[in-house]
Every structure is written in C-alpha cells, then in structure tokens.
C-alpha cells in the first residue's frame, strides 16, 4: 500500500490514530478505496469483454470485490461505467489543457494538446477503449455522455476567439470525427503503441480548415 491514494477526509499516514475497526482505516477511506477498485474493475472488464458483454459478475471479479459491495456504490452497470467515464474524461481533458505550450499561439497549442491526448491513450489502451471505442454503441446515457465529451474535446482544439463561421459546430464535429476515427481504428487493430505517430497528421487535420494546407503542413512538421 505504498501508493495509497490521497483521499479527502483520510488523515496523512503519519497521523493515523489507533485503528477504529479491524481495517485500521477510516470508513470513508475504505469506501473510496472500494469505489476506486470497482471503477478499475469496470475499465478492465469493459476493455476485455466490450460494454455489452460486461456483467456485474465480470466487474466484481476484476475488482476482487463482492457483488454486495458493488451495489452499495452503484445502481448497476451503466451507473458504474458512467462514474468511470467521468474520471477518464476529466483526466484526458486536464492532460490536454495542462499540456506544455498551453500559453503558446493556437497552432502550437493544438499540437501540444493532441500530443497529450495521444500520450494518455497510448499509455493505457484499456482506458482508451473505454473512452473512445465502447461508449457510442452502448446507447442511452453512456452514448449521450460520450457525445458531450467529444464536443468538449473539440472545443479544446478550436481557435479562440471562436471563428466567425456560420457553422463552427459542424466543423468541430467533422474534425473530432476524423480524429476519433483514426485513433479508434488503431486501437481496434491493437496498435495503441503507435498512436503517437498520428501526431503530425492529426495536427494538420485540425489546422488545415482554418489556416490552409501549406501553413498547416509547416506547423504540423516543426523543424527539429
């Protein structure tokens, strides 16, 4: 337990008083810990079996936590997946927004953010599958949540201030559709480790509609 996550309400390890129960950990911490393990189980199970074939039995088996405990935290599969999706989505966007070069001109920012996106996804293909591959077919709330996430993702790549374009939202969707398609196909082909090779192409794809092809090509392939 050397990497115990820092949970709000849990005292720092040096200050732990005598164990209140046989776990030796405050109840809120135990609950958070279980929840996190269950969410990890959700990601493992969905990445391995696909959303549709994922059952609570598979989630709790992956998390090594009882079914009863699962239902203390979540109403069911969709609820638990949405919770996992929320965390993944927040993490992806934070990584993009925190990318080096965030204060640079827009084209450099686009490149840095796409780089961060590809990095996050390449590092953990199971997370990448849960983020981009499984949700569209899941339908219902999950698919709706995914659409919102993709819209926000598109907005992190949009020039500021918004271009005076009659349908910038359609263009957003076309671009994110292109970006997502290229990424998803490589994930489906088991080539997550090669995702980062897409960086120049994706950068050019996003910049070209606004800057023209030549300029986009130049910026997508910066001098080393």
């Amino acid at each position: 337990m050397s990497e115990t996550p820092q949970i709000a309400g849990a005292p720092a390890s040096g200050e732990v008083r005598l164990p209140p129960g046989r776990h030796g950990l405050p109840r809120t911490y135990v609950a958070e810990n279980q929840r996190e393990r269950l969410l990890n189980g959700v990601v493992e199970a969905v990445a391995e079996h696909g959303y549709e074939a994922t059952t609570i039995a598979r989630i709790v088996a992956a998390a090594k936590i009882s079914r009863r405990t699962f239902y203390e935290h979540f109403e069911g599969k969709e609820d638990s997946f949405l919770a996992a999706y929320e965390m993944i989505d927040a993490h992806v966007r934070e990584s993009m927004l925190a990318a080096p070069g965030a204060s640079e001109p827009w084209p450099d920012r686009v490149r840095a953010r796409l780089d961060a996106l590809l990095d996050v996804l390449a590092r953990d293909p199971a997370v990448a599958r849960c983020y981009l591959v499984e949700p569209p077919a899941a339908g219902g709330e999950v698919a709706a949540r995914y659409r919102d996430a993709m819209q926000l993702l598109a907005e992190t790549l949009r020039p500021e201030p918004d271009p005076p374009d009659r349908n910038v939202e359609v263009r957003d969707q076309a671009l994110i559709g292109g970006v997502a398609t290229l990424i998803v196909r490589r994930l489906n082909a088991g080539a997550a480790d090669r995702l980062r090779e897409l960086l120049p192409d994706l950068t050019e794809l996003v910049l070209a509609p606004y800057l023209g092809r030549k300029e986009a090509q130049r910026l997508a392939h910066p001098e080393p």
Binding site: V170, Q173, A174, L175, G178, A180, T181, L205, K214
Partner: peptide, 26 residues
C-alpha cells in the same frame, strides 16, 4: 490538389462524414 497530403486524409474525411451522419441519427 496540394502535394504531400498525409496518408490519413481520406480516412479522416470518411470518418468525419460518418461521424456527422451518426450524430444526426442519434
């Protein structure tokens, strides 16, 4: 047509078109 278009241009265009249509359906 400009020279040096990335290999993935058409894949992204087809994906973008499918994406927009899918969104309208959803």
């Amino acid at each position: 047509a400009p020279r040096g278009l990335p290999d993935t241009v058409e894949e992204a265009a087809a994906g973008g078109i499918a994406w927009l249509l899918r969104q309208q359906l959803e």
